[in-house]
């Protein structure tokens, strides 16, 4: 469960989040929708612990533990995962090597033993097959030369392997064609249950057709302005953000 309370955040002196309060229960899929500039991406970065964001007030608790003082790696080991809108390239580092380094770093941080290589390979192959990721792709350097769709599938592969308690999907649908979107959504849906929760950030209702949310929040000017069930997303699709976006920062 993640609980964000009265979060105020500034970037380079400019206030972006303005008293945001949000709770995602265990096992819940929550969607956040909102216009450009409402602070959605900032929210995902602050939760994941990126530097350059100044938290002025408020708290973020993951399963009851305040994570604001924790490093990004510590948060990751606690089960926090961010699907990047624009996954980064790491030239020269084979994807397999990267996956293994990440998994073992998290296990080590949790005081668990390293996963034996054979077991690791088995898990990666199984997860990759479900996402139509070839063995060849796993040998290539992380995200280098991957298409937009390949990059996103690789994000979901990492998520499947790391089995996070709480995942943030930052505009996962951007740059995806409909088939890739379906594949990724299936990957996410397969992980639902077992108390895992998700925060799905998007502009469009379309993504929510594939990943049906339990609750929908509307974000504007750095805070949640309305919450409701899945029907709220449909209403937004019809009417747009005009009633929320008034006076919003660009």
């Amino acid at each position: 469960m993640i609980e964000i309370e009265n979060l105020h955040v500034a970037v380079a002196g400019k206030k972006i989040l303005d008293g945001l309060t949000l709770k995602v229960e265990d096992g819940q899929v929550a969607a956040i929708m909102g216009p450009n500039g409402s602070g959605k991406s900032t929210l995902s970065y602050v939760v994941a612990g990126r530097a350059d964001y100044e938290v002025l007030d408020g708290s973020i608790r993951l399963d009851g533990v305040d994570i604001l003082e924790k490093s990004p790696a510590e948060r990751a080991a606690m089960g926090l995962f961010l699907v990047f809108q624009y996954p980064l390239e790491i030239p020269g580092v084979a994807t397999m090597t990267f996956l293994k380094a990440a998994l073992n770093a998290q296990r080590k941080a949790r005081g668990e033993a390293e996963l034996p290589t054979i077991e690791f390979m088995k898990q990666v192959r199984a997860a990759a097959a479900k996402l139509n990721i070839s063995q060849d792709m796993l040998k290539r350097p992380v995200n280098v030369g991957f298409s937009g769709g390949e990059k996103k599938r690789m994000e979901i592969l990492q998520m499947a392997l790391l089995e996070p308690r709480f995942s943030i999907l930052d505009e996962m649908d951007s740059g995806l064609d409909i088939d890739a979107l379906k594949t990724c959504a299936e990957g996410v849906n397969a992980l639902r249950g077992d108390g895992r929760s998700f925060l799905v950030i998007t502009h469009y209702q379309r993504l929510l057709n594939f990943i049906p949310p339990d609750v929908v929040h509307v974000m504007s000017r750095g805070k949640i302005v309305k919450s409701g069930g899945p029907e709220l997303a449909l209403a937004l699709e019809a009417s747009g953000y005009a009633e929320y976006a008034e006076g919003a920062a660009a």
């Binding site: 490093s71 990004p72 998994l103």
Partner: peptide
């Protein structure tokens, strides 16, 4: 940050 988010110090 990308690597750190995946658990690397």
């Amino acid at each position: 940050f990308y690597c750190m988010q995946r658990g690397l110090e």
